[in-house]
Amino acid sequence: MKLTTVLGTVAATATTALIGSIASRDVDSRWYRKLRKPDFQPPAAAFPVVWTALYADIAVTSAVAIDELTERGATEERRNYVGALVTNLVLNGAWSWVFFKGHRPVPATAVAALLTVSSADLARRTASANPVAGLALAPYPVWTSFATVLSGRIAQLNR
C-alpha cells in the first residue's frame, strides 16, 4: 500500500467523520432526547467506537483497492472506484445532517438506504480489486443496513 494513497483515503474518511460529527453533536439536543427510540438501539457510546473502526476500515481497504487497480493499469476501473468512494462518503456525511440538523427521520432513512446500497457496492468493488480487502470491508454494509433499519424504526415511532 502506497503512503500517498492511504494518506488520501485517510484524509477523505477523516473529513467525512468530522463533517458527520459536527451534526451528530445534536445528540444532546432536546429534539433528539424526546424522540422515541427502539429497544434494539445500541447505547450512545457504541456509535463513535463503531464508526471510528469503520472509517479506518474504509480508508485502508480503499487504499488497497486503489493501489491494486493502479498496479493493474485499470485506469477506468480505478476512476470508477474513486467516484464510488466519494459518493459513499458524501452519503455517509449527509445522513447526520439530514437526521440531527434537519430533524428529518424519514428522509434520513432514505439517505441511510442509499448509503447501504453504496456501501455494498463499495465492498463489491473492493473485493473485485482485492478479495481480502473486500472481505475486510464487509462489516460496513452490514452496519449501514442496521442503521437503515434503526432510522426507519425511529421514523415510524415518531410520526
Rank of each mutant, 00 (worst) to 15 (best):
S21F: 11
T5D: 01
A94G: 11
A155Y: 07
A127S: 08
D121S: 12
A108G: 12
G134P: 04
L54P: 03
S96Y: 07
I22N: 05
T5G: 05
I66D: 00
V27P: 00
L135R: 14
T13W: 09
R153H: 13
A23L: 06
A14Y: 03
S96F: 14
P107G: 02
A136N: 03
A94I: 12
G152N: 10
L35P: 06
V132R: 15
A123K: 05
G20S: 14
E68M: 07
E76L: 15
F47D: 05
L115I: 00
P42E: 06
D67W: 02
P107E: 00
A14C: 03
A110P: 01
G134C: 05
D26N: 14
R25K: 14
L150D: 11
N158M: 00
H103C: 03
A123N: 03
I58C: 06
S119E: 02
Y32I: 14
A45N: 03
P141V: 05
R72M: 10
D26R: 15
A74V: 09
I58K: 04
L91A: 08
I154N: 10
A23R: 12
P131A: 11
I19L: 15
I19N: 02
D121W: 13
L115T: 13
F146E: 04
L85P: 02
A108R: 09
L150P: 08
A63I: 10
L18W: 12
A147G: 09
P107N: 01
S128H: 08
V6K: 07
I66W: 03
V142D: 01
F40R: 04
A53R: 10
P43G: 12
A129T: 13
M1W: 00
T116N: 05
R78C: 10
P42W: 12
R33W: 06
T5H: 08
G73A: 03
D26C: 01
A123S: 11
A44Q: 10
A108C: 08
T4R: 15
R30N: 08
T148Q: 11
S24E: 15
A129V: 13
P48A: 05
Y55D: 09
G134E: 06
Y140W: 14
L7I: 11
K37H: 02
V10D: 02
P107F: 06
G102V: 01
M1I: 11
Y55P: 04
A46G: 01
